[in-house]
């Protein structure tokens, strides 16, 4: 299966590249996840469609370097993630990968701005220098200045999800991973959210991997990957 294959034959520098990826939970039979080939260039937006329980979470954990595959390899900007130590993968995630969850992305006791700047410390960057960009991102995402110093929990769900995007994109990461970030939003909010997120990602030059079961969102993306094609145990090793 070839997904996100480059249009030309020229050798490309991929943002993310997966080869013969195999993963299974310890003690389980058969592969939980099998993915032979996936390559994404800078700025590409990929939609992965899959219901919950289809190995989606496993894929996200692999892509973000929380777990490593049993077989095969995973390169983030030519860096072999599967060969890095756990600590190095954590730092790489802080610097190069933004993550947005379904909901409750924010630490409840921190202010909106501190939530956005949270990533700085783990990426060994100074929060002070990034404050300007954080404020700019929040404004782009429609969050006014007066909201910045409020506690995260005082915001609506839609606003919280936009703060999460600001945090994910703060360091202009190579990759943005979004896990059903719109599931808690109504249709109007959802479309506005999608447009804002993809526009900001494009602005930051960030590649997007978006996972959702909602087919309606497919139209926002040029590249699609149905999850059921790489479901557990389907492909023999």
């Amino acid at each position: 299966m070839k997904v996100g294959q480059p249009v030309t034959d020229k050798p490309k520098k991929y943002v993310i590249e997966l080869k013969n990826l195999r993963f299974r939970w310890p003690g389980k039979q058969g592969w939980q996840l099998a993915l032979d080939n996936l390559q994404l260039e800078a700025g590409q937006h990929l939609f992965i469609r899959g219901a919950s329980g289809s190995g989606k979470t496993t894929l996200l954990n692999l892509l973000s370097g929380i777990t490593t595959p049993n077989e095969g390899g995973l390169w983030l900007q030519q860096t072999p993630m599967h060969k890095l130590s756990a600590a190095k993968r954590d730092t790489l995630r802080a610097q190069q990968i933004g993550v947005v969850f379904q909901q409750l992305n924010l630490i409840p006791y921190l202010s909106v701005l501190d939530n956005v700047l949270l990533v700085a410390g783990f990426a060994n960057q100074s929060a002070g220098e990034l404050t300007e960009r954080a404020i700019m991102l929040l404004q782009h995402l429609g969050l006014n200045d007066e909201l910045h110093h409020q506690k995260a929990t005082e915001l609506s769900v839609g606003q919280q999800q936009r703060v999460a995007i600001a945090r994910a994109l703060l360091l202009r990461p190579a990759l943005l991973i979004a896990d059903e970030p719109t599931s808690a939003l109504d249709a109007d909010n959802r479309d506005a959210f999608m447009r804002l997120m993809l526009a900001e990602a494009t602005e930051s030059g960030t590649t997007v991997i978006f996972v959702s079961h909602d087919q309606a969102l497919q139209s926002f993306f040029n590249w699609h990957l149905p999850m059921d094609q790489l479901e557990q145990g389907v492909q023999p090793c």
Binding site: Q95, I107, L118
Partner: peptide
């Protein structure tokens, strides 16, 4: 748990 997941997502080590 949520807090832990968020901190992990932004790059916190388990040791952190």
């Amino acid at each position: 748990q949520r807090e832990i997941a968020i901190l992990r997502a932004v790059g916190a080590h388990p040791g952190t």
